[in-house]
């Protein structure tokens, strides 16, 4: 897929977020249980985002004896940004799944979970290293 295609796809998704009536015009209404399952998946991603945001707060508040100021701020901002990314992705994935179900297509695949797992693992390793080796202020 070329870069312009991808940009157009993102633009299309964002337009769909704000024009929910358009989704309902497409295809047929799926079994409501599938829609509810999609909603629960969305909520699970929102919880993940909230956990990341809470982690950002926790780093800033509870690692004051272990980290210098800038390390703390960088880690907290990373976690908060991860939470925001997770939230945006939750909405996008929900819309795309809903549309795919209405049109009888395959559910969209995504590399976001893998990317997020790697990023969280890196942050965790960084935190362990920072705390263990006492790069403290």
């Amino acid at each position: 897929m070329s870069e312009s295609d991808r940009i157009r796809e993102v633009g299309e998704s964002v337009r769909l977020w704000f024009a929910p009536a358009r989704i309902q015009q497409e295809g047929t209404t799926p079994d409501y249980r599938f829609s509810l399952a999609n909603e629960r998946t969305f909520l699970a991603w929102i919880r993940t985002a909230l956990a990341l945001i809470g982690g950002g707060f926790a780093v800033d508040q509870f690692l004051t004896n272990h980290l210098t100021h800038w390390v703390r701020v960088v880690l907290a901002v990373c976690l908060l940004a991860g939470g925001v990314a997770c939230t945006l992705r939750a909405v996008n994935h929900w819309v795309r799944c809903e549309r795919a179900m209405r049109q009888g297509e395959n559910l969209p695949v995504s590399r976001f979970p893998a990317v997020m797992a790697v990023v969280i693992a890196l942050i965790a390793v960084a935190m362990v290293a920072v705390v263990l080796f006492g790069w403290a202020g």
């Binding site: 704000f18 969305f42 985002a49 940004a81 925001v84």
Partner: peptide, 23 residues
């Protein structure tokens, strides 16, 4: 139950992002 309206999803996402920005 009807499917979740997109407004609800956007509002929930808005609350989450508001907390992050606040943080």
């Amino acid at each position: 139950p009807a499917a979740m309206p997109a407004g609800v999803a956007l509002a929930a996402a808005g609350c989450t992002i508001a907390l992050a920005v606040f943080g």
